[in-house]
């Protein structure tokens, strides 16, 4: 078992010359380079079909990139497979868009599962640790609820609690605001901000929700499939002021690039 503490001299994520492609198709993104720093909330932004979810699948060890390297706390994620890849996967947590909680388990069992599988902690300590994580994300009192019996926002918070189970220094979030009302979305943003600032967890957020981007993201990259790469990098407030390239201005000002039929 790895501990992030021994590796915290390296940044949580370092991506070098990454080429992203679907299985046998031509590359959709090439030569991506970016770094996520400790405690940073980093946005991977882009329009629908820009390839941001494919980048995420490369980052979390689900699909091997066509070329390039991904370092998670200094370890080359794709340097090996099997045990090496699994050890690297313990260095980060992941929240899927719909939560991906196990439907047959209540919330405390969902959060406790990684601890049961990968630590030798006593059952009592595991339950305490799982309760603690649920309480931190504001789900105290819902420990015995099944995922089907809670709201979408609560499922996402429970998924963050599960992602935190093994105390990773890095958590990836796929579309955290998708399908949530503005209040719940703002509450989730606040939770991410609190966890990043209080616990020093780095977050890699894949999203296109402008509200969340502007309120919590420290730094972001904007992907554009037409140029097959990163069209802009920087703080969201700076990106929002850019007038060119047109795609960046259109994205941050919520404007159409071209009006269909005109």
């Amino acid at each position: 078992m790895l501990s992030t503490s021994s590796l915290n001299v390296s940044p949580p994520v370092e991506v070098r010359n990454l080429t992203v492609a679907y299985d046998n198709d031509s590359p959709i993104l090439t030569n991506l380079n970016f770094t996520i720093e400790t405690g940073e909330i980093f946005g991977i932004l882009g329009g629908s079909g820009s390839g941001k979810s494919s980048v995420l699948r490369n980052l979390i060890g689900l699909r091997k990139p066509r070329a390039g390297q991904i370092f998670i706390f200094g370890r080359d994620l794709w340097a090996g497979e099997g045990l090496h890849l699994n050890q690297c996967r313990h260095l980060f947590g992941m929240m899927y868009q719909g939560g991906a909680l196990f439907g047959s388990m209540n919330l405390i069992e969902n959060v406790a599962m990684p601890l049961r599988k990968f630590t030798t902690m006593s059952t009592e300590s595991i339950i305490t640790a799982a309760r603690l994580k649920l309480s931190l994300v504001g789900l105290d009192g819902f420990e015995y609820h099944l995922p089907a019996h809670i709201s979408g926002g609560m499922r996402k918070r429970a998924a963050i609690a599960r992602a935190m189970a093994l105390e990773p220094g890095l958590i990836f979030l796929d579309e955290p605001s998708a399908g949530l009302d503005p209040i719940t979305s703002a509450e989730l943003d606040q939770l991410i901000l609190t966890l990043a600032r209080n616990l020093g967890i780095a977050f890699g957020i894949v999203t296109h929700e402008l509200g969340s981007i502007m309120s919590i993201v420290d730094r972001a990259i904007l992907l554009d499939r037409t140029i097959q790469g990163i069209v802009a990098t920087g703080r969201p407030v700076e990106l929002a002021k850019m007038t060119s390239p047109p795609f960046v201005a259109a994205f941050f000002n919520r404007r159409p690039l071209s009006i269909p039929g005109v």
Partner: peptide, 17 residues
């Protein structure tokens, strides 16, 4: 020398016992 939330949970479990 080092402490995370799970470590805290272990100490707090022992205190509770």
């Amino acid at each position: 020398t080092a402490l995370d939330l799970n470590g805290s949970a272990q100490i707090l479990t022992a205190i509770s016992r």
